[in-house]
Design a protein around this nucleic acid. Structure first.
Lengths: 325, 325
DNA sequence: ATGAAAGCGCTAACAG
DNA sequence: CTGTTAGCGCTTTCAT
């Protein structure tokens, strides 16, 4: 049985309410009494019972992060930073993996709602309407998606994609394939729009391929469509899909970047290590995780925070192949 | 304000305790009353307050996982599986990242102890003594380390390493470098012992290099020592360190596996994609995560569960180079 | 500055 | 089978 306020009270000869105050309202208690209480608490190894505290204050000291897939390399840095920030501010962090299933997202939020002071929704797939409805039950901060009326941490994928398109155009590419991930991905829609605009600006064409699951398999599955289009460069929804594209290209004997240039999004660990090393739009996932927690804890107003991205050029992109009948 | 038992009681015309029983002791209540209560609850969107329930039952419905580094690719699959298993059994999962710092481990356990029904310690660095002491405060299951008196989920790294040594010996290697990670790593000690035994058996030598941090940087830092030893093959503590070794080799112009064979441990995503693709000891991290949660929830006896590993041979290992003065 | 008492939402004897 | 009561550990009025 853990040591409670009552034990500390007994040990220090004061009433429980005084002990309580010694912890959560220091200024309301005589400095010397407080010192005595704290000493006793320390001696006994007292740890406040968070559940009990939550019951009476309605603040739990917990936060949660809901992600689509912990194993997708985009998320671990986000989770790590979020948990770091949470801990630095004396909060614990729940984690929920929805396995890319929309229904699970809603359930995760609802079931966590009562146990947290706020939730970070990372790249949710639910409808805006549902997200807003859920926001009525628990403070929400959304990452990688803009939902009006809620604080959102956005990354400038659009800018990154635009830079990628510009670069590819400069390398002589005229037909780009945009390999998209989940249809419900806000980031994906953003990327598509930016790609379209940049394409017009640079006088190149971009063809949509997909949607496909945002995994290696999804990327590999998209390969034939990309090749069929006669595209000389592919912009993948994320690094994982780009990796799948790379693998399929290798299998089909299509040299990268010789005949096909490939660009990913995320800049995950693997992007650096795969061969050819992947050119990719670096997303500040860690920064986003930290920021999301910060916004939650500050009870931030519903404003968008946009973080920068950059194009990291490696070896999977190169000059367009000479046209050859 | 969330809807409470009281609201449901009022709406269905029974006492709160009946409502409570309708949820947590179905057999103690008339089927028809129960149906009515459930209907009312559903109608109102009632969700039990876990904190309140925890206060009176002393069961929180929460578990926690303490890991050294979420961003280390070994952990995400473990976390994912653990959270999946937890959710399947109606539990929520806290996550704590200790950033490889021992002191943080203890604090994480203590501060989470009151809020969970049990904790998974994944590859902890604390002393056995401390772990046992903490186990008195909260049920613990340890992964990747044997602690007597506690349920442990182990992976047969020893076997994997032995197979790797055997294979390298068969390829003609005579001097192997064992590049170790954190000194406090149980897995690392296990690997070292197994490497030693296998080396004797096959008549080869193994030289210890390290300890180094279990990161790419750590691996890279070990490279010169490995080269200085005249070893023709390196067994790294994990994939991350193996990747560092690979990068350093590339930088120094040492061909892999031409002049140096490299073996990792984990079989992370990156191991498959790096070039040369990494030969590695595959660790069943997901299985371990799931098993750990299962043991926790079953209140398992302090027995060891050992999961198998296998050697995945890819392109970073090959025949030993011909001796040349 | 401290004590007393009520109450957060729920469960668990105990009656009936 | 259901209502009553007490209490989980803590905070928070309200007195004093």
């Amino acid at each position: 049985m853990a040591v409670t306020l009552k034990d500390v009270a007994r040990a220090s000869g004061v009433h429980v309410s005084t002990v309580s105050r010694a912890f959560s309202a220091a200024h309301l208690v005589n400095a010397r009494t407080r010192a005595r209480v704290l000493a006793a608490a320390d001696e006994l190894g007292y740890r406040p019972n968070r559940a009990a505290r939550a019951l009476s204050t309605r603040r739990t000291g917990n936060l949660g992060v809901v992600v689509a897939d912990i194993a997708n390399p985009f998320f671990p840095p986000l989770l790590k930073a979020a948990q770091e920030e949470a801990r630095a501010r004396d909060h614990h962090l729940f984690i929920a993996d929805t396995d890319e299933r929309t229904a699970v997202e809603e359930e995760a939020v609802r079931s966590l709602a009562g146990q947290v002071d706020g939730l970070v929704l990372a790249a949710p797939r639910m409808s805006d309407r549902l997200i807003r409805e859920l926001a009525a039950e628990v403070p929400l901060v959304v990452v990688n998606r803009r939902v009006r009326g809620l604080p959102c941490v956005l990354m400038d994928v659009g800018g990154g994609i635009a830079r990628a398109v510009a670069r590819l155009a400069a390398l002589g590419h005229r037909d780009l394939a945009l390999v998209s991930g989940p249809a419900a991905s806000w980031t994906g829609r953003r990327a598509a729009r930016a790609a379209g605009a940049a394409a017009r600006e640079h006088g190149v064409r971009v063809h949509r391929v997909g949607p496909h699951p945002p995994t290696e398999e999804g990327g590999a599955a998209a390969f034939d469509a990309v090749a069929g289009l006669g595209a000389t460069a592919a912009l993948a929804h994320n690094d994982l899909m780009a990796l799948g594209l790379l693998a399929a290209a290798r299998e089909r004997g299509v040299p990268v970047p010789g005949r096909l240039s490939v660009v990913g999004v995320d800049d995950s660990l693997t992007a650096r290590h795969t061969r050819p090393a992947l050119t990719t739009v670096a997303m500040p996932a860690g920064e986003a995780g930290r920021a999301a927690v910060d916004l939650l804890l500050r009870g931030a107003a519903p404003r968008d925070l946009v973080l920068g991205t950059r194009l990291v050029e490696r070896d999977s992109t190169g000059p367009a192949p000479r046209a050859q009948a």
